[in-house]
């Protein structure tokens, strides 16, 4: 009894860090909400994203199609999703995305992803084309959406020109909330195709301008760039290799929170280096860590 009273009376001079709270996922941003809805004949199409907002970089997308008269969620043979970017010069292109969406019965919706390459502003305008087929009838619709800057640096991306003179895009997919721990690192690697898309093409004829790169290998070297950290790195990391979902999976260990640089080297299926340089392992206190020519900065 005495002890309880004493300990209640005796509080700490400095409060402990509430680590659980700091690292727990922001619930609000973790739920799917409507970004936009499109009316197509008798149907209403809902496009949903986390927090009801699209950001530059990787976004999960859900599409729900509802029969307006019955309010019933419908399932179709195929739902196609195509993001299109128009800029002031009216050059149209797409970005990495999943064109044929996958149906998930648990929430009666079609799941996909999109990796926006630009933020919407006066010169860049994004729209989404949706197409689906019912009883042999093809329906399609489009709607403008707004893409904002991604505040979460763990979903950063980088585009680069490889030593084969082709344009690539490397985008972080996971973890969105890294931990001071071993993290599964997932990234998408895409190649840009030169043919651009005519904005008047129908959705079936459309061709995305990025496609997944297969059978490459991405070497990983995570480091803390802060000068005082002296090029600090972590142990037990694993390079990224392509998994069945088409993305590249590896392991990154973060030894503390803060700024980290993920240094990459991308090799093609023949083992030729496409981009990236090896990073010095030297401990260099007081000097900002040297980066690979291919890197992505994260922060948590």
């Amino acid at each position: 009894m005495v002890f309880i009273c004493l300990s209640a009376f005796y509080s700490c001079t400095i409060d402990k860090t509430n680590f659980k709270q700091e690292t727990s996922i922001d619930e609000e941003k973790n739920s799917f909400e409507e970004v936009v809805s499109i009316n197509i004949d008798d149907y209403k199409v809902y496009i949903e994203a986390l927090g009801g907002q699209f950001y530059k970089g990787y976004n999960k997308v859900k599409v729900k199609i509802e029969d307006k008269s019955s309010g019933e969620k419908l399932r179709f043979s195929e739902v196609n999703f195509l993001p299109i970017l128009t800029n002031s010069d009216t050059i149209l292109e797409s970005c990495p995305h999943l064109y044929e969406m996958e149906y998930h019965s648990e929430d009666q919706s079609y799941h996909g992803y999109v990796i926006y390459t630009e933020v919407s502003h006066t010169e860049f305008d994004w729209r989404i084309n949706i197409g689906f087929t019912i009883n042999g009838n093809i329906y399609s619709g489009k709607e403008h959406i707004v893409v904002k800057e991604q505040p979460n640096k763990n979903l950063n991306m980088v585009s680069f020109t490889g030593h084969d003179d082709k344009e690539y895009l490397l985008a972080l997919i996971s973890p969105t909330r890294p931990k001071v721990a071993e993290n599964n690192l997932i990234a998408g690697l895409f190649i840009k195709k030169l043919n651009s898309i005519d904005g008047d093409k129908t959705i079936d004829e459309a061709d995305s301008s990025y496609s997944i790169v297969n059978h490459h290998k991405i070497l990983l070297d995570p480091r803390m760039p802060e000068p005082s950290m002296g090029n600090h790195s972590s142990p037990n990391n694993e390079d990224l290799e392509q998994a069945i979902d088409g993305f590249y999976h590896g392991i990154v260990n973060y030894t503390m929170t803060g700024n980290w640089t993920l240094n990459f080297m991308v090799f093609n299926e023949k083992g030729d280096l496409l981009k990236g340089t090896e990073v010095s392992e030297d401990f260099t206190p007081g000097i900002e860590g040297e980066k690979s020519e291919l890197y992505i900065d994260i922060l948590f």
Binding site: E22, V180, S228, T255, G258
Partner: peptide, 12 residues
């Protein structure tokens, strides 16, 4: 970090 406006680095 030297730039105090940046996020602190933390570990136990």
């Amino acid at each position: 970090p030297q730039d105090r406006s940046k996020q602190t680095m933390f570990a136990y």
